[in-house]
């Protein structure tokens, strides 16, 4: 039987030039529920879908505040995200104490990227199994970055990660030109629409499973949970995926990532 001989560690290339362990780590992101981020001229917004593993348990945490100007949404292994977010808090606090400057978003993102990259080049290490969307505001304005366990980071106008995120991305690709001049409220609604589109057919956005965070120029990072998101969901109206028939590709994607 076929067995992949090149996926035992993260320091061995396959003859095709791939590092399987890193690719598997990227798969771990797709196991997590979806998170969407988007930016306007004035704000950066994160929205995410929370899952509860079983009825008796609480909903998992999808968005973590790092500092007053910065926060992350995660998809994948939550414990790995905690380690990364604790590191980001340290970086942020150091910047404030040593330079009295809120850490620039690109700097803190590059710092975790460097950490992640090290894991792909040392024997015996495991890549982080989590993807992050980092939203924040610094002197150069609002920013949204995507972080991957490979150590890759890219800045986006709108981005989505996690299970069935392709549907959310499709929405973002259609609407992103409106983001720049959107108001705070419009931006949140755009985010929720993207999130809604990634839902499975029998699922809907509720106050229990939707989480929203907003940070803006002159506005501190704030997380909205539970009833606090009710008003936005009302404005949204339809809380089920507005997408009709799913494409074969998306249907296939949802098979192995069913909620």
């Amino acid at each position: 039987m076929f067995r992949n001989n090149y996926d035992n560690d993260s320091v061995t290339f396959s003859p095709q030039g791939r590092i399987f362990q890193v690719e598997y780590a990227l798969e771990a992101i797709k196991q997590g529920s979806v998170a969407v981020g988007l930016v306007s001229k004035t704000h950066a917004v994160l929205v995410a879908l929370k899952r509860n593993a079983e009825e008796l348990g609480s909903y998992q945490k999808k968005i973590i505040g790092i500092d007053t100007h910065l926060g992350v949404a995660l998809a994948g292994l939550a414990p790995d995200a905690r380690v990364l977010s604790n590191f980001m808090r340290q970086q942020s606090m150091s910047s404030r104490l040593l330079y009295s400057r809120p850490v620039p978003i690109s700097r803190v993102v590059n710092a975790i990227a460097d950490k992640a990259q090290v894991n792909t080049q040392h024997y015996g290490r495991r890549p982080y199994g989590v993807g992050l969307l980092v939203a924040g505001v610094d002197e150069t304005g609002p920013h949204l970055w995507e972080f991957q366990p490979s150590g890759m980071v890219l800045e986006y106008k709108g981005a989505a990660i996690g299970a069935r995120s392709q549907s959310a991305r499709t929405y973002l690709e259609r609407a992103f030109e409106e983001f720049v001049d959107s108001s705070r409220e419009e931006l949140v609604l755009h985010g929720l629409k993207a999130l809604r589109d990634s839902l499975a057919q029998d699922k809907e956005l509720t106050v229990a499973n939707t989480t929203v965070s907003v940070v803006g120029i002159g506005e501190n990072f704030k997380l909205y949970d539970g009833d606090e998101v009710g008003e936005w969901l009302e404005k949204l109206g339809n809380v089920q995926s507005s997408r009709g028939g799913r494409t074969g590709e998306e249907a296939a994607e949802s098979m192995d990532t069913s909620e």
């Binding site: 330079y99 009295s100 400057r101 620039p104 690109s106 700097r107 610094d138 002197e139 150069t140």
Partner: peptide, 11 residues
Amino acid sequence: QNDGHHLRASH
């Protein structure tokens, strides 16, 4: 870093 950020007087 060339990212548009500079250390100013207060920093």
